Simulated assay, not measured.
Amino acid sequence: MAKTMIVTSATSGIGKAIAKKLLKESTDKNDKLIINYFDKNQMEEMSNELSDTDKEKVTFIYADMSTYEGMEGFVNDVLKVSDKIDWLVCNTAIGTYKKFEEYDYELWDTILRTNLSVPTFMVQKFKPHFNNGGKIIFMGSLCGKLSYSSSLVYSVSKAGVHHLAKCLLKEFDGQNVSINAIAPSFVETPWQKGRSQESYDRINRKINLHRFAQPDEVAKLVYDTMTNDFINGTLLEISGGYEYF
């Protein structure tokens, strides 16, 4: 049966890998994949990488998902494409490496709003439109479980995302919608651009596999979770064996 799938912030990094995995596994010509983007150049680059068959399935929708208004516009645009939803991946996130002493309220509010509040209300708006057997994935982070010294606000926001995935189960009781969160540690994405070799080496010493994850490894876990009907209300880590020392 054809599915309508949505991935936010899906033209770069983990989101792009997830979108491409969904397309790779798509076998129904009527499947719809709705990709949220913010950067036009990234969108055009990704579009050029798609096969003609995949292009028939994809709808790119611009939205600034750091604002409630941007999210609301995105929801309205999605429902013009399909008023029924099967899979939703909430992937949008931002962070900061500023020291806690340098925080101001606006920075704190922007990160919590983008990473936690906006996805919450997006799910609220999409809730009546989920098909039976629908799936929701929140992209969390291992730093939402462990103390992450480089960004207090990012860690707090991701801890909220993890708990949100569990709490929402009660709200969807009776709709047969599974909700889970994925918690990667360090992933080789454009987010790591500018990281020094010393920083890579220091982090890799804390990872049992001694390397960062690749985006497609995270995407595979997302897909495997989506296609397992009994994984529900769970936080799934993908860390390579990472612990803080």
Rank of each mutant, 00 (worst) to 15 (best):
V222D: 06
S157A: 15
Y200L: 06
T227F: 07
S147G: 08
Y200R: 13
E171G: 00
S155Q: 01
S147R: 07
Q175S: 13
N180S: 13
Q214R: 15
S147I: 09
D201T: 10
Q197G: 04
L164H: 12
G160V: 03
K220H: 04
C167H: 06
K193S: 15
N176P: 02
D229N: 12
K170A: 14
F212T: 13
K206H: 13
K193P: 00
S155F: 02
F172W: 02
K170C: 04
V177T: 03
F230W: 13
K220S: 05
I179H: 01
W191T: 08
G194L: 12
W191R: 10
T189L: 15
V153N: 10
Q197Y: 01
L168D: 03
F230K: 05
F186C: 01
D229C: 03
L168V: 09
M226G: 09
V218S: 03
N204I: 13
H162T: 06
G160W: 02
A213I: 05
M226Y: 12
N180L: 06
Q192P: 00
A183N: 15
F212R: 14
P215G: 08
Y223N: 08
V161A: 03
A181M: 05
R205V: 08
K170V: 02
N208Y: 07
E198D: 14
V153K: 00
V222W: 07
